[in-house]
């Protein structure tokens, strides 16, 4: 009955997640800092300037928070809950002295991204970190990345919003070559599975799904007349160095990625890795 599997595979492959364009609601933006009043205000202005290209920028309500108002994690969460923002802007190592050692994000940021459902725009640390100097408002080149790109509607909605009219959306998917090779190594030792065929077919299917998704996104945005250029980068490789080179080559202004991972309390592994290591670029963490 292997032919049942064959046809089921054909139909499962033909069943694709569909992208439907929808605008994200953005009404209230909360800017969290660990600065005093005199430093927080210009930083808030800088953030406003950075987000000046957002379609809903003109109607946004802003609140810039000084360090004293959210020194503890509890205070910060209460503030977020009571003010109910649609977007929180902050930076790495908020309320942490560990910023000279680029190995973490800080307790505040890690808890904030996991406890609340509000997207967090993580910016380079004021004064100490460079990276967003040239980026003053959309249109941006925004890269949406995940370890499973196909079907992630919310990620694309936010990325499209931040790219702005005339911007560029880069849909990136890097399939882990090391993991693939590990499985191929096992398959090569299984006599019932033809190794060459498995390598060819599995590699093709792994890359086909995100590529199909990217095609669907392109078509849907075009149908919805969203003035944005979509590019897909789907390839096999080592994730971090490959994403880093895509960011550099594509002159990416902003990364958008998911941070929550079902079944675990900690931040999603790939997102944490990128947020920690690619410090010179703003990251929108969903």
């Amino acid at each position: 009955m292997s032919r049942i599997d064959q046809f089921e595979s054909v139909f499962l492959s033909a069943s694709k997640p569909q992208f439907a364009h929808a605008e994200v609601h953005l009404g209230r933006v909360l800017v969290l800092t660990d600065l005093d009043e005199s430093e927080a205000a210009p930083y808030g202005a800088r953030v406003r300037d950075f987000l000046s290209g957002l379609g809903q920028h003109g109607t946004l309500a802003w609140e810039v928070v000084t360090g004293a108002r959210c020194a503890s994690i509890g205070d910060m969460l209460s503030l977020v809950e009571s003010w109910a923002p649609d977007l929180v802007c902050a930076y790495r190592n908020l309320h942490s002295s560990a910023w000279p050692w680029p190995h973490s994000l800080s307790d505040h940021i890690e808890v904030l991204t996991q406890v609340t459902d509000v997207p967090v725009l993580l910016l380079p640390r004021p004064a100490q970190e460079q990276g967003w100097v040239d980026a003053t408002g959309a249109p941006f080149t925004v890269m949406a990345l995940t370890d499973h790109l196909a079907g992630d509607q919310r990620l694309v909605h936010w990325a499209v919003e931040f790219a702005g009219a005339g911007g560029q959306l880069l849909l990136a998917h890097v399939e882990q070559e090391r993991v693939f090779e590990r499985y191929m190594d096992v398959i090569s030792k299984l006599p019932r599975i033809p190794t060459d065929l498995a390598r060819e077919d599995i590699a093709r299917q792994l890359l086909k799904e995100p590529a199909d998704w990217a095609d669907g996104v392109t078509a849907a945005l075009s149908n919805a007349k969203v003035p944005i250029e979509v590019r897909a980068v789907v390839q096999m490789g080592q994730r971090l160095p490959t994403f880093r080179s895509i960011v550099e080559e594509g002159k990416v202004d902003l990364l958008v990625m998911n941070t929550k991972d079902e079944g675990q309390l900690a931040m999603h592994g790939l997102s944490y890795q990128i947020a920690v290591e690619m410090r010179a670029i703003p990251v929108l963490m969903l």
């Binding site: 033909a14 069943s15 694709k16």
Partner: peptide
């Protein structure tokens, strides 16, 4: 209707 439109008859 939206769900069945997710099938791509040209896939194979």
């Amino acid at each position: 209707e939206g769900l069945v439109q997710g099938f791509d008859e040209r896939d194979g």
